[in-house]
Amino acid sequence: MLTLFRSLFAPPRHMILLVAAAWIGLTLSEKRADRHGIGKDDLNNLTFYGLLAYIVGGRAVYILENLPAFTRKPLDIFAINPDLFDAFGGLAIALLVAFIFGQRRGLLLWPTLDALTPFFATLAVGLGLSHLAAGTAFGKQTDLPWGIELWNAPRHPTQIYETLASLLTLILLWFKKPGQRPGILFLTFAVITAAWQIFIQAFRGDSTLIAGGFRQEQVIAWVALAVSFAIMEMRFTVTKAT
């Protein structure tokens, strides 16, 4: 089953899983947009411009980072190589464009983030599946009975842990009773995701180790958890005051 899945979605076909997740996630977000006071068209446009900015911005940032290489063959700016891309740069540009679009359309930050939470949660499921298909984000070696054979060794199926955790998060948030406080749904997603990242990263075999053997990804997730708690508490206080 796993072998069939991995051969069916072997790179570069694993990207199909991400695209499918984005499409399903957007559909789910649309279904609940009204509940957060966000119009479906606004949500669609916001996602469209955000994704477009991610793609164009990721390439633009990569070009700026490797300007001498592109100067030698400028037409490669348009090369159909997805690897000529800076994911973090793309994300930064996408957030900026989404923010500007939101400001112009008068979208409120917290209700918009709440409306987009099913999109983010579904995307996380797709990311886990694409990791499984590509064999990336792999686990440490293990002799546990549920270990999977990957990269010449039995390993923790961290991609399956990741997919299941994301799926449970999506289900939990989808059936969560709607609250009165804008932003809490999104922050709950951030808290749960950061918490399971801290847990699951411990079983990864490709972590970036920093001083003391700590995993960089766990430290970042811990900081994200602390920040999410702080903002969540501020949201509780602000909403109560208003």
Binding site: G135, T136, F138, K140, Q141, W151, N152, A153, I198, F199, Q201, A202, G205, D206, S207, L209, G212, G213, F214, R215, Q218, V219, W222
Partner: peptide, 19 residues
């Protein structure tokens, strides 16, 4: 958990067609 799961030993070099 981060403290407990810190890597204390470096893994041995192994071969695989992966980064």
């Amino acid at each position: 958990w981060i403290l407990l799961s810190a890597e204390t030993t470096t893994t041995s070099e192994s071969t695989a067609p992966q980064v």
